[in-house]
Amino acid sequence: MSQNQLLEPIHGISLEDYSAACAKLGNGMDEQAVAGALGVELPVWQEASLLWAERMKQDSTFEVITLFGQYFGQADQHPKFSNATAGASGGGGYTAQIKADRAFYEELEVARNVAYEYGLDGAQWIVEKYGIALGDFQIAASQWNAEIHADLQADFEGYSQRQEAYRAKYQQLFASAQGGNVADDITF
């Protein structure tokens, strides 16, 4: 057991519970359902949720927020949410793929950001196109984070080139869908 008092459960809701609940909320599960899955009523969930966020703000050791990220990535294994429906995710192959295939995750992460630059809600675009809900997307992000970070240090050049190529691909895709960019006709 850690000595950090800030890791003690709040109203019986542990950091594992809270982190998994956040992932499920991101997938479109509503607060009542989240509270129900945790075996508490709404006022108890809302207090605990508010206070866990406070603890992250108060913790200068970053232990709480680090563990939050780790547990968030393991949300699918949390026993209290094992019966939860897939939420906004179609539950199809893409949701599994983004958690198993790093290149696929990297590509969609870029696509999502470029979508915003073209006036689309990137999270919504991913749902419509691939059936992957935001919570699942973020679960994948926290699963791949450490690996990507290590890769960045080992081969920054290669990583940037891949990112650039994805960027160019989606810029073209979204630009042509809106009839081009405003300054496409201006050349040197």
Binding site: Y116, E117, Y118, G119, L120, D121, Q171, A175, N181, V182, A183, I186, F188
Partner: peptide
């Protein structure tokens, strides 16, 4: 959020213009 999307689309075009200028500066 509708405002947010529209704003972000416009900022995206500004960014596109910046990248265009950067590219020419680099090359030419």
């Amino acid at each position: 959020r509708a405002h947010g999307r529209m704003l972000s689309g416009l900022l995206g075009q500004l960014r596109q213009m910046r990248e265009k200028a950067d590219e020419v500066r680099e090359e030419k």
